Amino acid sequence: MAEALRRARPVALALLWMLAVPGLQAAETKGHVVEGSRAAGLAECVKPAAQMRRQHMEFIKHQRIVTVHEGVRDTPYSLAGCVECHVRYDERQIPTPINHPDQFCGACHAFAAVDLNCFDCHAAVPNGGQESVSPSRREGEAHP
């Protein structure tokens, strides 16, 4: 049994690679920002894009500490700043919530199979616009 598993491993890895490459190429071709967002017109984020992709959660956690414990809210790593820059606006200038599966945060987190729970409490569009809080957090409903 162990010998069969050892022999099957290279085949399984090759199949996974064949399935993953087209998805990775599509992600690279599509880009890492959503058209119609302010970020789409910028050369880079507050840090180079590769660094933001790898470390954005560390920046967000550090910002949480600075905001909650020190009261500092206006920094380049604020979640509101991310939403302000990366949210897409439709033709009527209505923001599309950033956590929808086809939007900036939602698409990347879906691709990486990572839970996106920031917007259970935080606004997913700038300035408390439409759909700013998840449906489960709306007035009159029980909070988890």
Results as ranks from 00 to 15, higher is better:
R7D: 14
R7S: 11
A12I: 09
L15A: 13
W17S: 12
W17K: 12
L19F: 10
A20M: 09
G23M: 05
H32Q: 04
E35Q: 14
E35P: 06
A43D: 12
K47S: 00
P48R: 10
A49V: 08
R53F: 12
R53G: 07
Q55F: 15
H56V: 03
H56K: 03
H56Y: 10
M57A: 12
E58A: 15
I60A: 13
H62K: 12
Q63L: 02
R64K: 14
I65G: 04
T67H: 09
T67G: 05
H69P: 00
H69T: 07
V72C: 01
R73F: 14
D74K: 07
D74N: 14
P76G: 06
G81K: 09
V83Q: 06
C85G: 01
H86I: 02
V87D: 01
Q93H: 13
I94T: 15
I94H: 13
I94A: 13
T96A: 12
Q103V: 01
G106D: 02
A107R: 15
A110M: 06
F111A: 15
D115S: 10
L116M: 10
N127D: 15
Q130F: 06
S132E: 12
S134T: 05
P135F: 02
P135R: 05
P135N: 05
P135E: 05
R137F: 09
R138C: 09
E139I: 03
G140H: 06
E141N: 08
E141H: 15
A142K: 09
